[in-house]
Design a protein around this nucleic acid. Structure first.
Lengths: 335, 335
DNA sequence: CCTCCGAGTTGAAGCGTTTCGACAACATTA
DNA sequence: TAATGTTGTCGAAACGCTTCAACTCGGAGG
């Protein structure tokens, strides 16, 4: 391995001078600078990351903690990952992959060994057992998702309340007055999953605000259950002309269920989904997107900022974006 | 930060003793061992990764180089990643994420700075510009995929020849005598993508071997093109009763195209896909799987073996597995 | 009884950086 | 001219760990 001493010898200067050329922390005469640069190039010198980490107590690596639970939409995770990595690289940082199955234990290990300078934790739930740990450790962290208590944390999330509301507004603007909501499986609401509850809340509040009748039900992810839920919605509210679906797994069965119950999309019932854009595109559904790239980028930027000592707001919410597609159409005024 | 010296002081021994307790490289009396262990636990000591890397010239980290090209199937990549990470952790290694867009340049940087002990490179093509570099650098590497020249490398791959052949055999056993092959978009064959060509080759050879008439065509990934390709296949070989599809993007249009041309699946034309299992499951297609987990696991095991100085075969091929589903059915003997 | 040996422990020398204080050499000010 | 900065460079001391050579201390072997 070629060391800084080799470079120094080759350039006829002291090792410290080489270091200063590299870091720019002291003024160096143009002559020596170019001489050193040349030696570095010639010898193919790369600073030893470990040595540097030891000397500076900075690893220039951040940990990316990924969920691998069954049920997370993998393409979205990947999108997020690439955005995060790209952003990290732009700040000369590398990314260490930590899987959520390693748990709080794994985080403690990585943090304790000073392998990373910070953490980016995806898929944080309302009551996440990693949060207390993240508060303890020396390294700053940024969370994707929003736990119950965000004090002292830095969280980034899609504004799910606004997303739910956005769906209502879109449908209301089209003339719909009776709207249904098909949510995640009931277990998702049972374990405290923030985004599901928040979407519901936003949906409900918006409907009230616009004077619209709304009904909500969870949906399991098989055809029979979806059919049952949709039937139940229609029975409760026979005049229902629009449906908001916040359940990726159920999405595939919604149109079929409606059809089976004698309703066509969008003529009889309009559908708006809250889901990854590619799914919506594939099924030609009007949808509110899950902005994976934007989340990844933002989260990493915030983390880098915190690493550089800048403060950050506890919560950053991304505004929802709605893309109109074939599953909603202007509602004709009825008699 | 709590250092090894702190632990040593607390336990009343020398730092070196603590180190030996940790690494087990010298015999330590049971008393001191437990005493030291206790101090470690009490103080919450974790060895500083950088310092360790510096002293041992081993980072205990491997780089995972991921493709992010458009067109790779993200869920498969994720599956692969999780298997690789899990396996790495089992050997007390961590994983540094490197995206392919950082190119050979990025690999050189990571290798040069001794950040990692080895490389796991996904999605290697026949003529990959990273291969020469991988040969040069100090760290060993394992490739997923097979470049043209594998001498001195360690590659893991699905046996695509066998996969192509397996499809033919399955269909031949069901009584089919005229089989078509719908391949990747032609650009994929133009740039040298090993797996596509190998599958074709295996398919063709098996057909010859079984005395079966075969025709092959590429397919672009929109409905019109797929339809055109299928029509063309049927025109060339009107007696065709089975189709092997090696094109994830086209998969969705195949049944539709056949239907549009008056053929039902599986009664008129049986279909076998070579694709990720979940896609096949979703569309109820008989398929040869892409064993992402197995590839990830095997690749990482091989890499770890090489890191420990064990030699490894240049090429490890995983046998294809076929899962029967609704898109193929036994062929009735015709008059 | 002396020597030799092995088990257990230690001190110190690295590993490759960064960074602080010191020091020339020269320019500026009083 | 003497005092005072400024600029560019250097030497040496960390940073926290591993590991080698050396040492001590019982016990076994002659």
């Amino acid at each position: 391995m070629v060391t800084i001493a080799d470079v120094a010898r080759h350039a006829g200067v002291a090792p410290s001078t080489v270091s200063y050329v590299l870091t720019g922390k002291r003024s160096i005469s143009p002559q020596t600078r170019t001489k050193v640069r040349e030696s570095i190039r010639l010898l193919g010198y790369h600073p030893h990351a470990g040595a540097r980490a030891l000397a500076t107590s900075r690893a220039n690596v951040v940990a990316l903690v990924l969920p691998l639970r069954h049920g997370v939409h993998l393409p979205v995770v990947m999108r997020f990952v690439t955005a995060a990595v790209t952003t990290a690289r732009r700040h000369d940082m590398d990314v260490l992959l930590v899987t959520a199955d390693q748990g709080a234990q794994g985080l403690r290990r990585v943090a304790g060994s000073a392998q990373v300078d910070g953490f980016l934790v995806m898929d944080v739930e309302l009551d996440d057992d990693r949060v207390p740990l993240l508060r303890q450790i020396a390294q700053p962290s940024v969370l994707i998702g929003r736990p119950a208590a965000v004090k002292g944390l830095t969280c980034v999330d899609l504004d799910f309340e606004a997303a739910g509301a956005r769906c209502v507004d879109h449908l209301a603007d089209l003339g719909h007055r009776y709207i249904g909501f098909l949510g995640a499986p009931s277990v998702v609401y049972q374990r405290n999953t923030g985004y599901a509850q928040r979407t519901m809340a936003g949906f409900g509040a918006a409907a009230m605000r616009r004077g619209i009748a709304s009904t909500a039900l969870p949906a399991e992810d098989d055809y029979e259950s979806v059919l049952a839920s949709v039937r139940s919605l229609l029975r409760t509210q026979p005049a229902m002309t629009a449906l908001v679906v916040h359940n990726e797994a159920a999405l595939g069965w919604v149109a079929g269920s409606l059809r089976a119950l004698g309703r066509r999309v969008p003529d009889d019932v309009a559908v708006v989904a809250i889901c990854p854009d590619e799914l919506a595109e594939q099924m030609q559904l009007t949808s509110v997107q899950l902005p994976a790239e934007e989340l990844g980028r933002q989260a990493m930027e915030l983390l880098v900022a915190r690493l550089n000592g800048h403060p950050a707001a506890p919560v950053t919410l991304l505004p929802p974006k709605l893309s109109g597609r074939a599953s909603t159409a202007p509602r004709l005024r009825r008699a």
